[in-house]
Every structure is written in C-alpha cells, then in structure tokens.
C-alpha cells in the first residue's frame, strides 16, 4: 500500500505551509495517522509533530443524457494535513 498518493498543491495549501508549517497530502483511505506520519518522515526526511486527517465522501453525480439519466459517484478520498516540527520544510517544487 502506497500511503501518500500525491501532495496537494493549491494556493491555500501554499499559504498554510508558509504560515503554519503544515502540508497537505491525498493519502490512501486505509492509512492511519501513524502510518502517514512515518511515510512523510521517510519520504521528505523531516520530523512530523502532528497529523490531522479528513475523509471526503465522493460526490453524487447525475448526468442527463439522451439515453436516460446516468447516476454515479466520484471516489471518496482521505486528506492528511501534516504539521512539521519547527525548522523543517517541504519544497514540493524543487525536486522532480
């Protein structure tokens, strides 16, 4: 199981990182906070002080087409907001 799926790169997350030293990731829904902490520490060699997680439900999607109504859902996913110890930093843009 890959714990970290991708970092969240948005304006808000950039601001969060600049002011509170917090970084967001989309993570596997089955991963718990301990696993996430370990994964982030391993991947970016930083020390994590706390992890907050949010599970987003998939949105219900309805499409009205010629052949009838199509019902569906988008996938649900887990976000993790990771607070780093003071002095540590993650720069998503420097490495490839």
């Amino acid at each position: 199981m890959e714990v970290i799926i991708k970092p969240i790169v948005t304006e808000r997350m950039t601001w969060l990182g600049d002011t509170l030293n917090r970084y967001g990731f989309i993570v596997d829904k089955r991963a718990n906070k301990i696993e996430i902490k370990k994964a982030v520490e391993d991947m970016y060699s930083v020390s994590v002080t706390s992890v907050n997680t949010i599970v987003y439900a998939g949105k219900e999607k309805v499409r009205y087409t010629k052949g009838g109504i199509i019902n569906g859902r988008t996938n649900s996913f887990k976000k993790a907001i990771v607070t780093l110890a003071e002095g540590d930093k993650i720069d998503f843009f420097s490495n490839i």
């Binding site: 969240i8 790169v9 948005t10 304006e11 808000r12 997350m13 843009f93 420097s94």
Partner: peptide, 15 residues
Amino acid sequence: PGFRPGKVPASLVKK
C-alpha cells in the same frame, strides 16, 4: 488549477 491567476508561487513557475 488550485491557484487564482497571478497567485502561483514563483518557485512553482520556475520549476
């Protein structure tokens, strides 16, 4: 996506 026009961090653009 995720940024308003003109608000993208310089480092990201550079990358």
